[in-house]
Amino acid sequence: MIQHTPSTKRFTAENDWLVSNFSFSFGPYYDPDNTNFGPLRVLNDDIIQPGKGFGIHPHREAEIVSIVLKGQLKHEDSLNNVGILQFGDIQRMTAGTGVLHSEFNPTSDEETHILQLWFMPNEKQLTPSYEDISFDPKKLTNQLLPIVSTNGGDHVARIHQDLTMYLSKVDAGKEIQFEQQVGRKIYLFVIEGSFTINEEVTLNERDDARITELHEITLQAKQDSFILLIDLPGGEE
């Protein structure tokens, strides 16, 4: 089954320094029928103005992944990690028993655009930890590039959950095929462009698809596209 959610159905919160689009219930937005997809609990699509950001705040019992699409993101936390991320960098933070952190746009003249995802961990009371990795953007072309996985690896962040996150930039007219084990779920998010799933469902920019009971898919780009695909465990919602 393919559940398609167009970008216009997302909840948007906006103030003078931040525009956030929520794909799942978060903050001021609550929908009891849209709280998670498997262990995926949050996907926030944020635009942060220059010199602004999220001040120090706490997290617990979550695996948090940040993907910088444009600009820079400065991170500081109570584990004494400090770093500036840009496109090609991926950040994974295990909140576990509790961590404090802040995130800012450190520039004076450029917006920062990030995707931030929260996953429920596969065990509680984990020791808080932080990791950032870099990938080669050239390796995104017409293939699924793993950026986060349960085992981690070379240029792949390790996450405490049975999942793999992929990014890909697909040229117009090209196809990508993906196959997973029976009983798992697929989450797709269109960062840019437009493509079809199995020549049946069309996704446009910022749409998502939540796929169950369908474990082989073909993605065909209708135009140059940039996508996020997550291979998730099955089980009850």
Results as ranks from 00 to 15, higher is better:
E216W: 10
W17C: 01
P121K: 11
K222E: 13
T164I: 09
I2R: 09
Q181H: 15
K9R: 15
L203G: 07
I186C: 03
G71F: 01
D207T: 13
H160F: 12
P39A: 02
G183Y: 03
F37E: 01
E63S: 00
I211H: 06
Y166G: 01
R184L: 10
Q180A: 06
E63M: 02
N15T: 05
S20H: 00
N81L: 03
K185V: 06
G71N: 08
I67R: 01
T12N: 13
E199S: 15
V156E: 04
K169Q: 15
M165E: 05
N204T: 10
V19C: 08
V19D: 03
E179Y: 05
L144N: 03
T8G: 06
R41Y: 05
E236I: 13
D171I: 10
K124Y: 10
S225P: 07
D162A: 12
I211W: 07
K222G: 00
P6T: 11
Y130I: 04
G53F: 07
D208I: 03
G98P: 15
H75Y: 02
G71T: 04
D171F: 00
H57R: 11
D224N: 15
G71D: 07
K174Q: 14
W17Y: 13
R210C: 04
V190A: 12
L144T: 05
I133G: 02
E179S: 15
L214T: 14
W17K: 06
I147H: 03
N198A: 09
V65T: 11
